[in-house]
Design a protein around this nucleic acid. Sequence first.
RNA 1: GCGAUUGUAGCUCAGUCGGUUAGAGUGCCAGGUUGUGGCCCUGGAGGUCGUGGGUUCGAUCCCCAUCAUUCGCCCCA
Length: 423
Amino acid sequence: MNDVLPYPLAKDGWLHTARWRYVEGLFRDICRRYGYREIRTPILEQTELFARSIGEATDIVSKEMFTFTDRGERSLTMKPEGTAPAVRACLEHKLFAAHPMLKLYYVGQNFRYERGQKGRYRQHQQLGVEVFGASDAAIDAEVILLAMEFYRALGVEDQELHINSVGTAASRPAYREALRDFVRPFLAEMSVEGQTRFEANPLRMLDTKDESDLRLLADAPRLVDFLDEDSRVHFETLQAYLTAAGVPYTLDHRLVRGFDYYSKTCFEIIGTKLGSQNALGGGGRYDGLVEECGGPSTPGIGFGLGMERCLLVLDALGIVLSVEDERPLAFLVTLGDEAKVRPAAVKLLADLRAAGLAADMDYRSRKFGQQAKRADELGARYLLVLGDGELERGVVGLRDQNTKEQSDVPLPEIIARLQELAP
RNA sequence: GCGAUUGUAGCUCAGUCGGUUAGAGUGCCAGGUUGUGGCCCUGGAGGUCGUGGGUUCGAUCCCCAUCAUUCGCCCCA
C-alpha cells in the first residue's frame, strides 16, 4: 500500500488524495444512477469464509492471506476480496429475505500477502459491485455496461470487452478432462508453467502469455462447446443483450477466472492502448456462492477493479482528471502594525469563511513577499491586502493574481464582491 | 513463495578501495529590503547514510537479518 498524500508529488502524482476522491466520486455517482447502494463490510472476517468461498486450493487462500489467531483462538483474515464479505453481511442481516433482489457497490481495502510490485500492493483499494437475486443475463449486461461506462467517464475510450462462459460446477469437469486429453499427447512440449497447471488447475493453462503454449492450444476444445443447456442459453442471451445495447465484444475462449466460485459468465475489460498490464477490471457470475455460504439458493454476479491500477492506467494514457479545486479563492496578507492589523485579519477571515468562501492567510508573521509566495503555493486567485492604511480607510486591497491589478474595496462589501468573482 | 534491484538532506543525486567535521544542485528559513512578492546577493537551518544485529581499534561502506522500492516469475486488482 502506498500513502495517499494531500499534495501531488512530482513522481507518482497518482498518489494524490484529490484524484482518489475524484475517481471514487465518479464511481459512486455511476452506481447511484444504475440503482446500486453502498455496503461497507469490516476488514476482518473469519478465515473460514474465504477458505470456503474462494476455494482452499486457490493461491489466494493457500498462501496470500493475512491470517492470524486472535486472543480468543479464532482464526481471522483481513479480507482479500469483497464478494464473500458482502455475501456474509447480507446473510447475517437477512437481507436476502427482505430484499430478494440486491444491487450493491463497495469501495474498500483488500489485503493480499504477496510480493509488492507496481500496480500490485499488499493493501489495495477495490471498487466493485455485486448483484444478488437475478439470474437473467440482462443483469450481466448491466454490470458490464456499468463497468465500461465508468472507464468511459474517466476518459478511457479504447476499451475492449472480452467475455466467456465457464459453465457450472457440474459441467466443468467434463471440459477439464477434455482439455487434459487434448494436451496430454504433447504435454512435454508445454512450458513448465503449463505443465504445472495441467495437474493443479487445467483451466488456467488457457490463461497463458507463452507464445508456444498458445500455438499448442490453438485447437484446444472450447469451454462454450461443453456448456450445459442452461449455461449455453444464458451465454447466448447475454450476447444478444450486448448486441442490442450496441456493445461490441470479443469471445475469448481462453478467459477464465481465478476463484472457484465463478460460474457461467466471466468477463474482462481490456484497455487496448496499454501494454501487458492491460486489464482494467473484470468480473463474473457466481450463482452457487450464496448457497455455499449457507444461504438460500441465490444467483449473483459482480465486477471489481483496483483503484491503484486504475490510476496508473490513467497516468499511462496521459489522462488528466479535473479533480476538485482545493485552492483558496482569496489569500489575506497583512502589512504594518501587527497588533492592530491581526485582529482585523482574523475577523475578516472568519467572515469570509462563514460566507462560504475558501480563504486563508499565512499565520507566520512574515513580510509581504513571503506571504505572497505562500498565496502562490496554494494557488489563491485573489490577494486581500490589509494594513494600517486600509484599516483607517475601512477598506481592503483586492488584488487579482492574474492581472496584478489592485483596488480598494470597502470592508462591508468585500464578501459580496468575492462571491461575484467566485467560480 | 522464488530470483534480482535500490534505499545517503524536503526533492534529484554524488561520495567514502573501512579512517578527522558525509557533499552538490534544488527547495526551505533569515537578512540585504519594518507597506506590495516571485530576480539578485549574503548567511543559516536541515542527515539515526532505511532499521536491527555482527565483524573491526574504527562501519554510511564489509557480513547477516529485517523493512520498504522497482523489475522478472507466480498470481491477480
